[in-house]
Computed example of a mutant assay.
Amino acid sequence: MKGLLTTVAAGVIAGSAMAQDFDLDALVEAAKGEPPTTVYAVTGKIVETAEAFNAKYGLNVTGKKVNEAGQVDLLIREHQAGSITGSVSLASDVAVIVTDLVAQGVVESWVPGDIAQHLAESARDPLVVVSDPHVWAYNSEAQDTCPVTNVWQLVDPDFARLVAIMDPLEKPMYADWFNQLAEHHDDAMAAAYEAHYGKPFEGDSATDAWVRAFAANGPLVADSSGVADAIGAPGQEKPFFGMLSAAKFRDNADKGYKLAICSGMQPFAGWLYPGLGVIAKGTPAPNTAKLFIHYLLTEEGIAAQSVDGKIPADPRIGLPAEEASGIGAHLGELMVWDTASSDSDLERRQDWQDIWMTELNR
């Protein structure tokens, strides 16, 4: 029953036709005849999601937290060995998944027919299960309002060594963010420059100029917890400003932190990083993998992540009231990631990392 459901490429079949062809009950029955399997995700919440999935469908799926680079490595090694342990990869390295792993047949994107019609076209191929907002943030205890209205302020002397950010050398999505700005929003970066300095930007790339100046201004580079500590820890006279995932706003409740989103910032208050859901080709549990993807696209299946501010791909699913950051009110201020430029993101990643490292160490 391995070929029970045909892989659906977005845009090839109309949404209504896909819905008619999709049979969830048949998929569940097919999955019950398959061996136990594992799903990889960058969040530890995948453990409880897998447990809830097993309870719902009577299956045996293990959720395992693995970072972006680790997932790519596992997917490649398991594919080469012909022994697939991880059937599903969630929220790995977008540029590598799209440019290398899909193209080389290591993984494939599959869209459930009953849900595809509700997804934005840009979220169907490859399938985006959830998006992770990374936002500019400040300490609401030390400051009544956000002290920054424009990204170019962050390269001025007033913010030297006072901005915290995750390391683009360790978190390639940040280097890819630079490329997304340069590829699709350089005009917006130039307009922000003119708004801040009162004169037009002169040069080939406003984004390139900003990245160089930002790195040279001595930002604090840390992991996600370190960035959250620097910005949000209470009792600071002069806290850091910075960027982090909206998921870290849970520290406001857990640790008494004072993180707040910097709304109204030019040109963007942050960006949405797409969490792709892909299936390992050759998995001995293909129907279980498809069923798990389907589950992640439901309100129940994504609940453990949406409570942390992760944005479900299906717009019919809102964020829960207890979500800590309030990101739902600011989605229109965020840069939307364009997976169509993944080739460029990967090709230029090392260039952006080299620029960052060189300027940071001056």
Rank of each mutant, 00 (worst) to 15 (best):
K32N: 02
K32E: 00
R161W: 10
Y193R: 04
T62S: 10
F201H: 05
K65P: 07
K64C: 08
G44T: 12
N252M: 08
E202N: 11
D73L: 12
T339Q: 14
L272N: 08
L127Y: 05
A95F: 10
V98E: 11
N361C: 07
E194I: 06
A206Y: 06
P168I: 00
A303G: 07
G309E: 11
D21P: 00
N60I: 00
A55V: 00
L346C: 09
L181K: 03
L59E: 03
V42G: 15
P239C: 10
A253I: 11
L244C: 12
G301E: 09
P200K: 04
T145F: 11
N139T: 06
D343S: 14
T37P: 02
V8G: 07
G33Y: 01
A142Q: 02
Q104R: 15
A303V: 08
E68H: 09
L331Q: 03
H185Y: 14
S344A: 15
I302W: 00
S92D: 13
N54W: 03
G15C: 13
A14L: 13
N67I: 10
D223Y: 06
S89G: 14
T288E: 03
F178Y: 12
G326H: 00
M166P: 02
S122V: 12
A304S: 14
Y174R: 10
L90F: 11
D176H: 14
D176R: 12
E347A: 15
S122M: 05
L360F: 12
D338A: 10
V135E: 10
V106R: 09
N150W: 05
V151L: 15
A329M: 03
T145N: 12
P35R: 02
G328F: 00
S140R: 15
Y257L: 07
A222N: 12
F240P: 04
L59S: 04
E108V: 08
A324V: 02
F201I: 04
A81M: 07
H118I: 01
S306F: 00
A213M: 02
A41V: 07
V221E: 07
I46A: 03
I13E: 14
F201C: 02
A175I: 02
A175H: 05
G86C: 05
A9E: 14
L331W: 04
P274K: 01
A17K: 13
L244K: 09
Y257H: 12
T62L: 07
L291A: 06
E322F: 02
I302L: 08
P200L: 06
E183F: 09
E183K: 11
A19Q: 14
V88N: 04
K32R: 15
P168F: 04
F214D: 02
F214Q: 04
L291S: 05
D208I: 00
A10S: 14
G58N: 04
D204C: 00
E68M: 13
